[in-house]
């Protein structure tokens, strides 16, 4: 079964027990609230495998980076996985700039 929910520019999909968060073009100060809600919805459903598809993200700021790290930590604390899919160079660059590139499992 596939369940899809959309809030703002963030789409959440449940498929085969895995959670997918598909982001729009930005993950910035104004998007973090929606991202948190999407993540918490999956958490409430006890989804352990969460994939964040960043293929469309071309702008990310410190708030966007911050929410990703917080969610990664929360997922790991609960024994889950939180993986980043298809990040563009802009995203990888800021991950490297703030030394968090190695925190994430990245799927190219």
């Amino acid at each position: 079964m596939v369940v899809v929910e959309i809030e703002s520019n963030i789409e959440t999909k449940l498929e085969d027990g895995k959670g997918y968060i598909l982001l729009g073009e930005t993950l910035s100060n104004q998007d973090t609230r929606h991202f948190r809600r999407a993540f918490e919805n999956l958490e409430r459903k006890n989804i352990k495998e969460i994939y964040v598809n960043m293929a469309r993200v071309n702008q990310i700021d410190s708030s966007g980076v911050g929410i990703l790290v917080v969610c990664l930590k929360r997922a790991k604390e609960k024994g889950g996985n939180f993986k980043i899919m298809f990040p563009r160079d802009e995203v990888k660059r800021i991950f490297k700039l703030v030394n968090i590139y190695s925190y994430f499992e990245i799927i190219e």
């Binding site: 973090t32 410190s62 917080v70």
Partner: peptide
């Protein structure tokens, strides 16, 4: 970064670049 919190990373970025 060892005591990472959601906010406050902006100053780190400014000082980095």
């Amino acid at each position: 970064l060892d005591n990472f919190k959601e906010n406050g990373l902006g100053v780190y970025i400014i000082k980095s670049v």
